[in-house]
Nucleic acid binder design. Structure first.
Lengths: 127, 127
DNA sequence: CTTTCATTTGAATACTTGTTCAAATGTAAT
DNA sequence: ATTACATTTGAACAAGTATTCAAATGAAAG
């Protein structure tokens, strides 16, 4: 943000038009920020693990803690994050709290990422 | 990871079977970690912005810096990260270095995230 | 060879984030 | 009320990360 203005390189001067065209097409900064937040929610192994488990079935905090093998407290903290991101929803029943996925898009995102990694890892993709 | 073992809550004891079934179905930890890394690559506004721009066309570092409105140095650092993640590839031509997307899955991920945000923001989704 | 310019790199800094521990809710049972 | 238990919360600490600045490459041109 400093070497701009007078110090614009020749290429930028030439392609100023290209830059402006891109700025028009691209989603605005707010949109990009929100998209980044979705990715960020899935960017932590613990949270992704939680989401993967909830992809299968509804689970209580205790269950999740067992599957992910992390303290109840740590899980609860992460669940709060996923809650505020509208990725999971919850349902109280007695002392227990049951969590499930709130959003359908998440499934597609996780699936796509899985395919990507499988391909890059050289795993056979048929079936 | 501490209140486990002897202190397992009654629910877990009952559903121990459920937990084991989940552990079988779910991708192993290595896979989950790799998936999280893909998401992490897209989890930063700056990097996502770069990727969105490259979705449209091949660009040099200078161009990207102009579009994202951040110092050349900052962009170069992020590009290195995207490079090691195999998300972008580059091509040298004289003094300039041109970057483009290395992976097809990224497009789908970004599109899905965009749709998700648009829905949650209450934007009309037709067309 | 020296200068110029696009890009990269390394160190430093400020900021963010995941986990832990201890304490607080809140619900159900004795 | 008191106890037991599932979950949440807040503070604190360690680890990770994005950006900046200054310096280093490396390629083309004078």
């Amino acid at each position: 943000m400093s070497e701009k203005g007078s110090l614009i390189c020749s290429v930028n001067v030439v392609d100023q038009e290209k830059i402006q065209k891109l700025e028009q097409i691209l989603p605005d900064k707010e949109m990009t920020k929100k998209m980044a937040e979705i990715f960020k929610a899935l960017a932590d192994p613990t949270r992704l693990h939680i989401v993967q488990a909830l992809l299968e079935e509804e689970l209580c905090v205790c269950d999740i803690s067992a599957v992910v093998n992390l303290s109840i407290s740590a899980i609860s903290h992460q669940l709060r994050l996923l809650r505020t991101m509208h990725i999971v929803k919850f349902r109280k029943q007695g002392k227990m709290v049951y969590y499930s996925l709130d959003d359908d898009h998440i499934t597609l995102l996780v699936q796509t990422a899985l395919e990507h990694v499988q391909e890059k890892t050289g795993e056979s993709v048929r079936a």
